[in-house]
Computed example of a mutant assay.
Amino acid sequence: MIVKYSGQALALVIMLAACNQTPAKKNQQVVEQLNPMRLIPAGEFEMGADDDSGSPDEYPKHLVKVDSFWLDEHEVTNAEFTAFVQATGYVTTAEKPIPKEEVMATLPPGSPEPDSSLLAPASLVFVPTETAVDLRDVSQWWSVVPGASWKAPNGPGSDIKGKEQHPVIHVSWEDAQAYAKWAGKRLPTEAEWEYAARGGLKNQPFPWGAETPQASPGKTNIWNGHFPYENTEADGFYGTAPVKSFAANGYQLYDMAGNVWEWTADWYDAGYYAQVKPGTLNPEGSHTPNDPEEPSAKRVIRGGSFMCSDEYCRGYRVSARMKTTPTSGLSNLGFRCARSAK
C-alpha cells in the first residue's frame, strides 16, 4: 500500500526517503528535523514506585545514576516510519507469517502443530466491548486480526491516512531496533526511560507531578470512563493522539505518559530491582528474562497508553513496568529512540 501525504508531511517524507543507502549519521540528522532529540542531563534518581500503589516488580526503590543521553522529543510517528520503510524496503514482524517453531515453543510438549491459517501475518487489535467485562480476561478486548499492521492498524481496509503525526503502532521490538539502527540511534534502557520521564522531578508519580490525569484530563491521553466499553474522551481522544498534543515534561519530552506504550532495550525480570546495587551507573537491566506469570521471554515496555484507566491499568505512572514478547504487535505499542551523548 502506498501512503499519500500532502504539504509539509510530504516534503519531509521525500527528504527522509532520499536517505536510502546513506550512512546512519546522515539518516539521523534528517530524521531529527521531524523528531528533534533532547539532551537529558546526567544525574541520579530513585527508581521504582513512589508510594504503595505500585506493582510488586516496582520495588524496592533504589538509587540509580545515568550519564547524559539524547532522547527523541516524542514517539516515532507514522510519517517517520513510512520514510524508513520507503528508504529500506523493511517488512515488519506483523507483515510476515508467524514461524511455526515460535508458536510450538509456547505450547505444552506433545501439542499438535497449528493449522497454517493460524500462522498468517496478523497483529493484535484493540476491540472495545459493548458492556462491562471481567478485567482479568484480556481476551475480551484483544483480537488477532490477519492483515493488521502498522500501515493497516485495524486490519484490511484500514490505513494511516490523516494520521501521519500519530505514533506508529503494531511494531515489534525487532522493528523498533531496525528503525533505530537505520536512524543512527538505539532504544533507551529502562533506567534512562524512567529518569527522562520524571523530567527532573523527585519522587512524583507522573511526568508533571502528583495530580492524577483523571483530576486534570488535559495532562495526557488515557482511557476516561469505564474500560473497555465506555470512553468519555475527556482528554479529546478515543484512540491514539497526534504526538505533542499535550504539554511536555521538564525535559521537554512529550507523551511520556499515555498515548502508546514504548519499547525499551531491557529484558523483563520481575525481581531485577532487588538485584541492583544502589548507585549503579547506567544499569542495563537483567541479562536473563524472567516472568513468573508466563514463561516466554519478554522485553520491558513503559509509559502506559490510551487504554490505561484508573480502574484497570495505571501504566501512565512513571515507575510502572509492563512487559511483552519481542515479536508482539499491538494497537497501543510504539517506541522512541535514544542516543548516547558520549
Rank of each mutant, 00 (worst) to 15 (best):
S328Y: 08
P283E: 09
L118S: 14
G315W: 11
M15W: 03
A215L: 13
R186D: 07
S123F: 00
H226N: 15
Q252F: 11
E311R: 03
A94S: 15
V91D: 09
W141R: 03
L119W: 12
G303L: 05
D57A: 13
T77C: 10
A270W: 09
F45E: 01
M47W: 00
A42F: 04
V30G: 11
R198F: 01
G329F: 03
A9T: 10
G110P: 08
C308P: 11
E130S: 14
D137P: 10
G184C: 10
E113I: 06
G209I: 03
G184A: 04
N221L: 10
G218H: 12
P156D: 13
E164I: 01
V13N: 14
G315M: 01
V145H: 03
Q28V: 12
M307E: 03
E95P: 06
R136S: 15
R198M: 04
P207V: 01
E311W: 07
R299G: 02
S55N: 15
D137E: 14
D72M: 11
D134L: 05
A105V: 12
R186N: 09
S245N: 06
E46I: 08
A257H: 05
F84M: 13
Y312K: 12
M47I: 00
G258A: 01
D67T: 06
T240I: 09
P23D: 13
K244M: 13
F206G: 02
